[in-house]
Write a protein that binds this DNA or RNA. Structure first.
Lengths: 336, 336
DNA sequence: TATAAACGTCGAAGCGCTTCGACGAAGGGC
DNA sequence: GCCCTTCGTCGAAGCGCTTCGACGTTTATA
């Protein structure tokens, strides 16, 4: 591989001039710049990442911690990751992948200067990674909210507002008894905060609207889903509006409703909290609150980059306002 | 951050001794080693990755090219990736993430010495990345088979044998008319080679067994799936055995069969080609040929590491023998 | 027209690590 | 008791880049 010295020799300038031409950190005359560019092209020169990192104290890599167990919502995770990688490239950074629980990896990549910044996915209320992050020099942004956000940069969908939005919409349509079909028990137990927040928003808004409401967790296996749906339907009079925040259970919920002879939206209205693509992919296109995973990923990168560029940028928490799109799964409750 | 020099000073040795103690490349007396380890621990020393890479010409990072569009089989992709990352860590390497089509990124990370080796997922028959790989210095292993594998390291499930296995099993059970519900049209068109290979194996083995067989592509949207299933069922006499190699369509295929009143396995036997977890997750546990994605990912890393360690290790193609597990979805065809 | 400022370029000093060769001390073979 | 290894350690030379200060040359400013 050619080095910057080879380029300098071919362009008949010093290596520092090549460096400045390439980084743009000092003015270079058009003529010189052209010669350098020609030399770079002719040799196929690429700067050595390690040398650059050593000299400049910047690796141009950001770390991404991502859950990789085949679990709850692979599709969403993937969209986050896609958003992160794409946007990182736009900031001309690469992405180093870390698994969710690799606490030691976190220290290795930060202390070893492998990464300039970090994006942490799927944050839990009392996340073990937060203390590590606090003492590291690199800026980090969390996707999700820990219990204490002071001094941390966080970004997420406003799940509480999402819960409210769903409840208010169902109330507006005339439903007087509604239910949230929520995250699987294991997610709740891990205290991934979004699950709690949806519940709080949903129940709170329902109370305020004077509508009866309940929230249930819902496993992802078909039988478990059936049991949950059955329990809901067997109550009398029972809910006429459902808000489903559980991507993996969603198809089976709809399927069970069909099996039980309940028409959507004739007998039951359904609102889902999921990515648009998922809402579309169902047999009845679902009225949904979008989970803009890719956008959140991009935004996380933007935030972390801003702080990398200018350390005085404050570490704020940004909660994205949820938006609802009405499709074919909602309507007025059936007349009694 | 402390440097190796700080450690050396504290341990009262030279920096080279510290380096040798840490790498184990030269013998160090127990007493010295202990002092060095103590100093490392006391200072919380971590070697600077860039400096190490520069001096040793090894980054201890492997590149992983992974498709991140929300597409065909996110769960499988994720399992591959999980396998890769986990095993890479066992070889004390980190993983740099590249998107599937980032050809320029490939050159950047190889020529810029960001990675020591590469794992490339989801290889197509005439993959544009292959020429780039051939001219790069780093060892690479492909997950999937390009048209010309000479000189390349590849690893994949033996999809052709999988097709055969399914056909033979259905024939053995007494089915005389069988069908392959295959990959979505867009996958076939991209000539992701595994789709073709399954078809070839399935039809070939069926012919040999003297069994009528057909192969159809199958989109992933519910209506598309229904149409495919309907077309199959409306033929008379029609197939009594199905081999489904399309993870996203799988639940809907089963659902449509139920809607059409066909019992599994009473009226129709179904074999799936998918990860075990998917086969279990269906309402009827599916007889399946396992797609051991995580294992393939690990194996890919092992192969690439072997070649990294010893450049004379040949670049071989390894096709994993498929294994079938009988569950509740297969049996004899109905009596006529 | 004298003088300060900006421009364009260069040389050299690192950044933090690995690795080669060297060298004294200790151990083995005869 | 001598020579040859092996062991354990050190010093120094890079690895390929960035960046600081310096220095002639223009160009603007008064």
């Amino acid at each position: 591989m050619p080095t910057i010295e080879d380029v300098a020799r071919l362009a008949k300038v010093s290596t520092s001039t090549v460096s400045y031409a390439l980084s743009g950190k000092r003015p270079i005359s058009p003529a010189t710049r052209r010669r350098i560019e020609a030399a770079v092209a002719e040799l196929g020169y690429r700067p050595h990442a390690g040398a650059k990192a050593l000299a400049s104290a910047r690796s141009e890599v950001i770390g991404l911690m991502m859950p990789m167990r085949v679990g709850v919502d692979v599709a969403v995770i993937m969209q986050f990751a896609g958003g992160v990688v794409l946007r990182a490239r736009e900031h001309s950074h690469d992405v180093l992948l870390l698994t969710q629980d690799d606490l030691d990896g976190l220290e290795r990549v930060t202390d070893g200067s492998m990464v300039d910044a970090l994006v942490i996915m799927d944050v839990e209320a009392d996340d073990a990674r937060v203390p590590v992050l606090r003492r590291s020099k690199q800026p980090a942004v969390l996707i999700g909210l820990p219990r204490l956000t002071a001094g941390l940069a966080c970004v997420d969908l406003d799940f509480e507002a999402s819960g409210q939005l769903a409840a208010v919409e169902l109330a507006r349509l005339g439903h007087r008894d509604i239910a949230l079909v929520g995250a699987p028990p294991e997610v709740l137990e891990r205290h991934t905060s979004y699950a709690d927040r949806v519940v709080r928003g949903f129940l709170g808004a329902a109370a305020q609207e004077g509508v009866a409401a309940q929230a249930v967790t819902c496993p992802v296996d078909p039988d478990g889903v059936d049991a949950v749906v059955d329990r809901l339907l067997d109550r009398t009079p029972g809910p006429t509006g459902l808000f489903v925040h559980n991507e993996r259970a969603l198809p089976q919920v709809l399927h069970r409703l069909r099996e039980r002879g309940r028409a959507v939206p004739g007998d039951l209205s359904v609102i889902a909290l999921c990515p648009e693509s998922t809402a579309h992919a169902q047999q009845v296109p679902l009225t949904s609150i979008d989970l803009p995973a890719e956008r959140i990923g991009s935004l996380a990168v933007d935030m972390v980059m801003a702080r990398l560029r200018d350390a005085s940028v404050p570490a704020e928490t940004r909660l994205l306002t949820p938006t609802m799109t009405s499709r074919a799964s909602t309507g007025a409750p059936p007349a009694r």
